[in-house]
């Protein structure tokens, strides 16, 4: 199951629980029950402790699982990415000038080997962009921001061969929705 679906199901389950609790509380207003301050206070205390523990457990489970690069493996390949209104240039060699960017952003998609850990070094020549790697079927796999003045290192291992479109995930101007890039896993 994808992260997206897990998150959606978790959300729907908690939302359903909330609706149920609110509905029960609203229904209880038809019968007059005297307020019991000490029982409410005890219940609140247990609820707060339980919720606190759940939050701590969720933090413990999710915080180690960040997408930031770690030194678990040495990447086998580095791909330089420069975003600029309104295309992504991907290249095996650093892109340092507008001319180089023009050349790579209009050339055939870069090829990367299947199963290899690839480090994308992502930056921007103008405004903030979002480097969003999608599957051909339109599922978002990974992203990092392309920020002018900074190089973000995104590491990704793709096993399935095929073309991977890159969409822009930060509003960057009038052709934001048409800004693209791509690479091919072989």
């Amino acid at each position: 199951m994808t992260v997206q679906l897990k998150a959606l199901y978790l959300f729907l389950a908690i939302a359903a629980l909330l609706i149920l609790v609110f509905a029960l509380a609203a229904l209880s207003t038809t019968s007059s029950i005297p307020a019991n301050a000490s029982a409410a206070s005890r219940l609140r205390k247990s609820f707060a402790i339980l919720l606190g523990l759940v939050l701590l457990a969720a933090l413990g489970l999710t915080l180690p699982n960040t997408p930031y690069p770690r030194q678990a493996d040495v990447p086998e390949k580095v791909v330089f990415v420069v975003a600029k209104q309104f295309a992504f240039g991907l290249s095996e060699t650093p892109i340092t000038t507008e001319e180089q960017w023009e050349a790579v952003s209009s050339s055939a998609p870069l090829e990367i080997p299947a199963g290899a850990l690839v480090e994308f070094r992502v930056t921007s020549f103008d405004v903030n962009h979002g480097f969003g790697v999608y599957t051909a079927g339109g599922r978002l796999l990974a992203q990092t921001q392309a920020m002018p003045g900074y190089v973000n290192r995104l590491r990704l291992r793709l096993d399935r061969p095929g073309k991977y479109p890159v969409l822009c995930l930060e509003l960057c101007g009038m052709q934001h929705h048409e800004m693209r890039g791509a690479f091919v896993v072989r």
Partner: peptide, 8 residues
């Protein structure tokens, strides 16, 4: 201790 990003 890997820098996730570095400034240009």
């Amino acid at each position: 201790k890997l820098a996730k990003s570095y400034p240009l």
